[in-house]
């Protein structure tokens, strides 16, 4: 029996509030990450990911309070990404109740950071988030970008994924910056190329517009988990509907 595939709703959090708009009909305060997380938990989310996009360093601690509150009432795995620069940042998030942290720019700036973090705290809590775009500059045809897809790095996405796995990443969150926000579906060639190249779990991200896209992320993209934001935030689909749809397509899910 293989593991169940996972659905992971992702929330952008700015200074302790959910942004990008979440419009559930039966929720009192769509900006409260705890309420939104509670809703996803009820619907059967397999994990929850918070992406902290708080710009100012002084307000960074607000995410810790959010994590503490969510972790004290929601009992599924919780991943937090954004602004992680040192081991201390990771320890603080784990102590607040996060199970994993997602690291992006700091890994590109200093790949050894992933080695140090996984040695110290264990691979199981280190997710490397990689943002990739189609590119003619790299052998795989995909290049790693940072800063929300604005800065190119010259790194080949598949080679980078292998390097991060070798350095101790426990999981890879693979986002296509070309597809992010388009609702055209995952960049399946990117996720499958990376899934074939590494032996750690891969999460597909960027571009989900309907439930068939989630299925394709698993079947064609070879991902172990699918991450989505807007299709769930706006009540287009519930997570339960998504899971039912995927089960009907022959995918093993936790129901």
């Amino acid at each position: 029996m293989p593991l169940a595939k996972r659905i992971i709703p992702c929330l952008d959090v700015d200074n302790g509030r959910v942004v990008k708009g979440v419009k559930f009909v039966d929720i009192r305060d769509a900006g409260d990450p705890v309420e939104v997380a509670r809703r996803y938990d009820l619907e059967g989310a397999d994990e929850i990911t918070f992406l902290d996009i708080t710009a100012s360093h002084e307000q960074r601690d607000t995410i810790l309070h959010v994590v503490e509150k969510v972790a004290s009432e929601i009992f599924i795995p919780l991943t937090v990404g954004g602004g992680i620069r040192q081991i201390d940042d990771i320890s603080r998030l784990l102590n607040a109740g996060a199970d994993k942290v997602a690291i992006n720019t700091s890994a590109v700036k200093n790949p050894d950071f992933i080695k140090q973090a996984s040695d110290k705290l264990g691979s199981q809590c280190i997710v490397v988030a990689l943002d990739a775009r189609k590119s003619g500059n790299t052998p795989s045809g995909y290049e790693i970008y940072t800063h929300g897809g604005r800065h190119e790095t010259g790194l080949d996405a598949v080679k980078w994924a292998q390097q991060m796995a070798a350095y101790g990443a426990g999981e890879l969150l693979v986002t296509s910056m070309d597809r992010d926000g388009t609702k055209d579906g995952f960049e399946l060639e990117l996720t499958s190329a990376i899934a074939d190249a590494v032996s750690i779990p891969v999460i597909a991200s960027g571009g989900v517009g309907n439930l068939q896209h989630l299925v394709e992320g698993i079947t064609l993209g070879k991902a172990d988990a699918v991450l989505a934001a807007s299709i769930f935030h706006f009540g287009e689909y519930t997570i339960k509907q998504a899971k039912k749809f995927m089960v009907n397509q022959g995918i093993e899910m936790r129901m």
Partner: peptide, 21 residues
Amino acid sequence: ENGRIAEDGSVMKVPQMGWNQ
């Protein structure tokens, strides 16, 4: 054991990370 193949052809990754029965 790394790379063991499940009945459905999928590769069993190590660590086991996720929901199982």
